[in-house]
């Protein structure tokens, strides 16, 4: 199975690649300017986090919009990737009232898919000034925290997922399990 990581300039993009590789998936990091046709035959795609504010700056997100529009495989947006996905598909992302840096307590609203088999609350690692303020049409919220209304979301129409927190960072509990659950979706297509 092949799941690539789109590099949006985040500090932990390499960790995202490393988790996937550790889980036995063929993976590589590709620039976010890579033409879609060069990644079209993957089984899944991760849109990495990025520098501060980049998720709400479409001009800094390269071809992420094209990847989301044309993907017939599952896509997981992380942090900036999650915010961009929301904006691109008709939701909204804005500056957070309370930016989160460091550990936060995630509350799972729906155990489906990404949080399948996980506890109802657990610690996650955050690093964001912006957040998803409105879900795109046909998306549902999967988790929240005290200071962030949409910590995770998914589309009900297509295999698109977004997480505000960083599952690739070791301080996030069950980060590897979240990636495994995403890979199950990639396997099931």
């Amino acid at each position: 199975m092949r799941v690539y990581v789109v590099d949006n300039g985040g500090q932990w993009t390499h960790r995202e690649w490393r988790v996937l590789t550790y889980l036995g998936v063929e993976s590589k990091i590709v620039p976010n300017t890579t033409p879609f046709d060069e990644i079209a035959d993957v089984d899944g795609l991760v849109l990495s986090g990025g520098a501060p504010r980049v998720g709400v700056d479409a001009s800094a997100m390269g071809r992420n919009g094209e990847y989301i529009d044309r993907a017939d495989f599952p896509v997981l947006g992380i942090c900036a990737g999650h915010q961009f996905m929301a904006l691109h598909l008709g939701g909204d992302a804005k500056p957070s009232k309370v930016p989160e840096f460091g550990k936060a307590r995630l509350v799972v609203d729906k155990h489906d898919t990404l949080f399948d088999g996980l506890p109802g609350t657990f610690d996650v690692w955050e690093s964001h000034n912006d957040e998803v303020a409105a879900l795109p049409p046909d998306f549902e919220r999967l988790a929240h925290s005290e200071n962030c209304g949409v910590q995770a979301m998914r589309s009900l129409k297509r295999p698109l997922f977004g997480v505000q927190f960083h599952p690739e960072v070791e301080h996030t509990q069950f980060g590897s399990e979240i990636f495994k659950n995403f890979l199950k979706v990639c396997e099931a297509r």
Binding site: H111, D112, T113, D116, L156, K157, R158, P159, A188
Partner: peptide, 17 residues
């Protein structure tokens, strides 16, 4: 459709949980 998949697997996971 994918929606059918989501709906059915949601029921499975809800029962499992």
């Amino acid at each position: 459709t994918y929606e059918d998949y989501v709906r059915i697997m949601s029921d499975v996971r809800d029962l499992a949980s």
